[in-house]
Design a protein around this nucleic acid. Structure first.
Length: 243
DNA sequence: AACTCGGGGAG
DNA sequence: CTCCCAGAGTT
């Protein structure tokens, strides 16, 4: 009996490497200088990620600075009244995030708590307000672990580049995009930090939901959607020439 | 799997 | 005007 064939890789390794190398080089040159990219403090990273949930970067910047001024450490949050934390959140929306942060702070700093924000995505995931994305983000951005993360930006970018037939809005397809994200994480934690930031930055600046700026895209050579666009344009031109 | 939570900006 | 945004929790 023939042995079953080994499972095909989720993404061709050579293609993943070419994609990642181009993407990271682009980020080093064009990535925005954002405050939470200048620190590895897990508490600071956590605050930024909670604020950034469903909230655009430009509006978070000021809240982030003001919040950390008022609550310099996780312990300051834990020792504050819940209302004080919600007050610092006023205007940002999604106030469950503020309540979750307070609950998280008390749990982590409790006598039987870990005392510090954990580096492992699985442990992070167990904390209030921390889902799959935020767990990966804190693990990668604060601890430089080789953790994958998928937010709406990353889901869209990976879908367009590697899996145009998937629909990121479907939970079923979203788990497959997580598989892809995990498959393309680079070898070192440092490079993983850059690549994860770069995936989100590309989705925020170039490969946006409404507009695909392929002329500015560093990875169009590895992009399935771009290839389809070019092929379609060629057909259009050929038809025109035939007349 | 569908709904809810907010407020602001882009197209 | 509609859709989207560094999502997560609840039903």
């Amino acid at each position: 009996m023939p042995r079953p064939a080994p499972p095909l890789p989720v993404v061709d390794p050579a293609r993943a490497r070419a994609f990642g190398t181009r993407l990271r080089a682009w980020f080093r040159r064009h990535g925005r200088d954002l405050p939470w990219r200048r620190t590895r403090d897990p508490y600071h990273i956590l605050v930024s990620e909670l604020m950034l949930q469903q909230t655009q970067v430009v509006r978070v910047v000021d809240y982030y600075a003001r919040f950390l001024e008022r609550f310099p450490t996780l312990r300051h949050v834990a020792e504050a009244e819940p209302e004080a934390v919600t007050d610092a959140w006023a205007g940002l929306g999604y106030y469950a995030r503020a309540r979750n942060l307070h609950a998280l702070a008390r749990r982590v700093t409790a006598a039987d708590g870990p005392g510090v924000i954990p580096p492992d995505p699985e442990a992070l995931r167990a904390l209030p307000g921390v889902g799959a994305y935020t767990a990966g983000a804190v693990s990668s951005f604060a601890y430089e672990r080789r953790s994958a993360l998928v937010d709406t930006n990353v889901a869209r970018v990976l879908q367009r580049v590697f899996a145009p037939s998937l629909d990121p809005k479907r939970p079923r397809d979203l788990t497959r995009l997580w598989r892809i994200a995990e498959a393309i994480v680079p070898r070192t934690g440092r490079a993983a930090w850059v690549q994860n930031q770069a995936l989100m930055e590309l989705g925020a600046l170039v490969c946006t939901a409404r507009v695909m700026r392929c002329d500015q895209c560093p990875v169009r050579a590895s992009c399935a959607t771009y290839a389809a666009t070019v092929a379609a344009a060629r057909t259009t031109v050929a038809k025109r020439v035939r007349r």
